[in-house]
Design a protein around this nucleic acid. Structure first.
Lengths: 343, 343
DNA sequence: ATGAAAGCGCTAACAA
DNA sequence: TTGTTAGCGCTTTCAT
């Protein structure tokens, strides 16, 4: 009735538990005789034996479980990342505990405890702030840790990021090629490395491309959501009504920008072109189709998971501190030539 | 450097580990003296003690972890459900291990093992098939289990479902009210209880409302996805070209129907009206806006989690075998009056 | 090649 | 009120 343990299998075969343990462990240092292994495995199968990973973990300090911290699973940016992570973890016998911070640092702190109490072998952090003492501390104490999308500043926690610089430059160049001269930027929250980095990239790229930026037409959002995108877009347009192109730090801000523009009676792309970042799902089906910078979400998850496993199981060789994934400009209907004849 | 244990706290305070254990356990049967508790808690705090739930779980057979099985996290139907589950679990100290089956029974079997090896206290199954011997077996062995959205047939596993019957009837009546007479149904896979149930509801409701159904205009999909929705829609229209209304068993099928129609040069809703089921996110932003039956996803998650906890921690009172959540018709642009003057 | 024994960190009788 | 003890199921060193 109740779950059989090693002891039950041992009794069944008439050997000691340690023999059973060894027979079932493919990398046992002193495996039993082949014939014995067969008998033991047969009995284990027959009894429906399943190892108790809690007990094993208590002994070995390895739970084959990793924690994944994201801001919010209902944000469609994250599920593909999670599938990427799972795709490398699961075949190796690892399971993931996924937690949502909702962007609240105090919640994040508690969740870090939750994960650590469960003895996770490592954490993939997809929601880290630029400064996060607790995460820094845990990494220092030896907890294997990898950040994804964002990075923790002044730390040597390996991170997997997207090529923000290239992406922003592509988007800006695209707007320029369409003839746009007056361009604004709805920047991401500066507490995230992505917000800061993309803002810096915007400034660098506009200098490089010779585009004049009105400082007031660069507005940082306080969250990565549509409401903030709309609010900031209003400010951008107010700062410089001649603007015909708005580059947003991510897709949700851009979706908000679209709303704000139509609210003002402006048409996209006829009056104002808009670009996003990430290429979250469904964008192609939402008119007018957001032009955006596609990041490799599944790959990013895979890469982060591989890095984490390397840290956990590797032979101590240092892993690359930063892996930058390539991005790609996806052109859709939200960007168009300046002064295009509209319907 | 390394994580302090009960023993460390005990040594610090100069008491026995069991006293520390009791001091930290709010429902200890024999708690230490108040003053002692204070001293112990202070020391525990000071040392940064965190309980090791693995060890506790090994002892108590309770891990404060539950498993959640879903088909695919990238399907936007599921994240809100997960947040609902989390919203009741997390405050109580439970964590969730989420796994994706991709609709593959063999994968599901393996994942059930994964969860059980980790000693989950219970499982919320959001991807169960109508027949699933392994799940039935585990429930019989006493593993607390609740199914969500779908139900396992011939079993007494408690389930949280939506009012499929009412939803389908609402949708059908809505089409009828708009003047539609020739109506088809893209049914869900019959391996899922939702597919079967909604199909039955469609038949019942059409009889009740006096709508004549051409049997060939009822086509079951083999998966809940857009491709199948499109394929089945083709078959439906071929079965009866006079059809002006298609009721789909879920939103993704309906999205596929929309594609198939436009492929055929038919306009929605001018030529054919379409309805879905679930009201997944973003539907309002995708033209023409799918009319659909909204299910309470977050609530469903909450309800399932509460039921599971009741089974795990309750005083053995039986929990309701079935909780049916109300649904609501959301009317958008994909349904319109028959023969409407189009642009 | 196999068995014995210790112990991971914790809880819960039972004893004092 | 507090300490002692045993043991959850497993791994692993050491002995045979």
């Amino acid at each position: 009735m109740k779950k059989p343990t090693l002891k039950d299998v041992a009794r069944e075969v008439g050997v000691h538990v340690s023999s059973v343990s060894r027979a079932l462990d493919p990398n046992a240092r002193t495996p039993p005789a082949d014939e014995m292994i067969l008998r033991i495995k047969e009995a284990a199968d027959r009894l429906g034996y399943r190892p108790n990973r809690l007990a094993a973990g208590l002994r070995t300090k390895r739970t084959m479980t990793v924690g994944v911290i994201i801001p919010d699973i209902t944000n469609t940016l994250f599920p593909p990342i999670l599938r990427g992570i799972e795709s490398v973890l699961e075949p190796l016998g690892y399971a993931a505990i996924i937690v949502n911070t909702d962007g609240l640092p105090e919640r994040e702190d508690r969740l870090l405890d939750v994960l650590q109490e469960r003895g996770v072998d490592g954490i993939i952090h997809v929601a880290v702030l630029r400064h996060d003492p607790k995460v820094a501390q845990m990494a220092r104490e030896g907890l294997p840790l990898v950040t994804l999308n964002r990075r923790l500043e002044n730390s040597d926690i390996p991170c997997v990021t997207n090529d923000d610089d290239a992406g922003i430059e592509m988007a800006l160049r695209h707007l320029m090629d369409l003839g746009h001269v007056h361009i604004g930027h709805v920047a991401g929250p500066t507490v995230f490395s992505t917000g800061k980095q993309r803002l810096a990239a915007f400034e660098t790229a506009s200098r490089k491309l010779g585009i004049q930026i009105v400082p007031a037409a660069v507005v940082p959002a306080s969250r990565y959501d549509e409401t903030e995108g709309a609010r900031c877009t209003d400010l951008v347009m107010r700062a410089n009504p001649r603007i015909t192109g708005i580059l947003c730090a991510n897709d949700r801000l851009a979706l908000g920008a679209l709303e704000a523009l139509s609210q003002k009676g402006l048409s996209c792309p006829r009056d104002v072109s808009v670009t996003g970042f990430n290429d979250i799902p469904f964008l192609d089906r939402i008119p007018p189709g957001l032009t955006t910078v596609r990041t490799e979400k599944f790959e990013a998850g895979q890469t982060a998971a591989r890095l984490l496993l390397e840290i956990i199981n590797g032979d101590g060789n240092p892993v690359p501190p930063e892996t930058v994934l390539p991005v790609k400009l996806i052109i859709r209907g939200s960007t168009g030539p300046i002064g295009a004849m509209g319907a």
